[in-house]
């Protein structure tokens, strides 16, 4: 059996890739995808802990996180579309009426 440590390292790596993506990319949709990557890294952590402990509450939590991520995707894409209709860009550097 693969030790828990490896799962945790993998999910921490995914989480870090997500953070770096959010901080470096400038396209709103790609930033959003990086955030989804972060959430899925958390899901991986939860599932591996849950299976390691033999405790189901972690897996239940994953379902909630997936539902929340789906809701977030719906709201987020709608916001991005609304912005695109007004501004014809989704580059976050060009969205700068206020100082970012």
């Amino acid at each position: 059996m693969i030790p828990l440590k490896y799962y945790l390292i993998l999910s921490a790596a995914f989480f870090s890739i997500g953070i770096i993506g959010v901080l470096t990319r400038r396209n709103a949709i790609i930033i959003f995808m990086c955030i989804e990557l972060m959430l899925n890294a958390v899901n991986l952590t939860l599932v591996s802990f849950s299976s390691f402990f033999g405790d189901s509450s972690g897996q239940i939590f994953v379902f909630f996180v997936m539902a929340v991520a789906a809701a977030e995707a719906a709201v987020g894409l709608a916001i991005i579309i609304a912005l695109f209709r007004n501004k014809l860009t989704i580059n976050v550097d060009e969205v700068n009426i206020f100082k970012w």
Binding site: T45, L46, E72, L83
Partner: peptide, 27 residues
């Protein structure tokens, strides 16, 4: 639009941290 985009991107980013924290506490 701009306010909600900024709020959304940074808010979702921060909830990622919060969630990872909860996962580690659970662990």
């Amino acid at each position: 639009n701009e306010a909600s985009l900024k709020y959304f991107l940074l808010g979702a980013f921060a909830s990622g941290f919060l969630l990872y924290g909860i996962a580690l506490i659970y662990g």
